[in-house]
Computed example of a mutant assay.
Amino acid sequence: MAQKLFSEAKLGALTLTNHIVMAPMTRSRALGNIPNDMMAEYYAQRASAGLIITEGTSPSPNGLGYARIPGIYSAEQIEGWKKSTSAIHQKGSKVFIQLMHTGRISHSANMPQGAEILAPSSVAAAGDMWTDSEGMVSNATPREMTQADIKATIQEFVQAAKNAVEAGFDGIELHGANGYLIEQFLSHRSNQRTDEYGGAIENRARFLLEIVAGSIEAIGADKVGLRLSPFGAAGDLLPHADDNHDLYVYLTAKLNELGIVYLHLVDHSGLGAPAVPEATVDAIREQFKGTLILCGSYTASRAEADLESGKADLVAFGRPFIANPDLVERLETGAELAPLDPATLYAPGTDGFAQGYIDYPVLAEAQA
């Protein structure tokens, strides 16, 4: 049976209890965009993972594109997150907060008053967005960011990194995947700028690299990670440009120079998206000397194989953690995994927000 997966692991200066990462997953339980007691319980239930990466959390009111997602830009939000970091640390796990600015994947009905939908270019994304007040609506057309907007947004990420440390997080994960603001700058479809933030690879990568550099300066490279989804399909970014592979190889070399603690690559092919080409994953692995986390429909045996071969340093599991708070134990013992309830992924059940969130039983309870 798998061994390395369940053994201690190093992540920069941190020691993790195992090589299993709980992947970031939006759950839309932050009422009023403020982290709460229920969220702390949810994460604590799953703290047998060596590392937890939280759901996407906005560094700014402008990044709150989805209903009921948390932020980390106000004193109240920082205090709210302390409940989760404390609960997770008490259980022996480590936790990074994922900083996610939704950019053009947004609707004003989900945002506080005074917030604005911003993106690299004024190009709406195809697709719909849930709002609690209006139901399903089309993604809104964003305002093209000025240079001043870009600088201000970079500073929002940097301040959010400082706020994360204040809230007790072990580090931050910048969300450069899934079609959100950072990836909107990387993509030629959403970024049609002609200034130094658009066009050539170096220009499209600039926004991300400036956020990384600013975050490192603020909290240290050993506390900064990044999630990427090369060739991902989320956020209306298909088809990719011919230089997409080269873009990610260039980015990886720069990130390696900057010294971030980890790169987290997600492959959504298990959910129907195109697979990340093996050549791109191999090129990233070759370029990047920090910790590489791989994510994408893993089983325990495939995770063990990729750890043993050196293809991955840590392996992230997403959806299985939702219905299996004790996923680590179930993987280690080979126990059957419980299925999740799709109806309560992002929404309250008939019994409120706790349903399908903190009421999934552990194995002993399920068997009883």
Rank of each mutant, 00 (worst) to 15 (best):
L226T: 02
H175L: 03
A273N: 01
H268V: 01
V95G: 03
D267L: 06
N256T: 03
L327A: 02
I150Q: 10
F288I: 08
G168H: 12
G296V: 04
F321W: 15
A161E: 10
G32K: 05
G63P: 06
L265A: 11
P361L: 13
A364W: 01
Q90L: 14
P61H: 12
A177F: 08
H89F: 12
Y73P: 03
Y250Q: 06
Q90W: 02
E257C: 01
Q113R: 06
R143S: 14
R104M: 12
E8Y: 04
I69W: 01
P320D: 12
T85D: 14
Q113T: 12
S58M: 13
G259S: 08
L340Y: 14
T17E: 05
M38V: 13
I219R: 07
G259P: 00
G171H: 07
N324M: 09
G214Q: 00
F157T: 11
P320V: 15
K254P: 02
V21K: 00
Q367R: 07
F157W: 07
P24E: 15
A67H: 04
G32V: 11
A338P: 03
R227Y: 05
G290Q: 09
D242S: 15
A279N: 03
D222T: 08
I105L: 13
R68H: 12
Y248V: 03
A343C: 08
W81E: 03
E278D: 12
E308S: 15
G356S: 11
F288H: 06
I216H: 01
N244Q: 15
D306M: 11
V362K: 09
T26S: 05
I182H: 04
A300T: 08
A343H: 04
H89V: 11
R46Y: 10
L363K: 13
V281A: 09
Y250A: 15
G32T: 05
G171K: 04
Q355N: 10
K94M: 07
S190R: 00
S93Y: 10
T141Q: 06
E202G: 02
A273T: 00
N244A: 15
N110Y: 05
A49P: 04
N324H: 02
A335V: 12
G318L: 11
Q287W: 05
I105W: 01
V123A: 00
K162C: 00
I20C: 02
G225M: 04
R104E: 06
L11Q: 03
L340P: 05
H19L: 05
V362L: 08
E336Q: 09
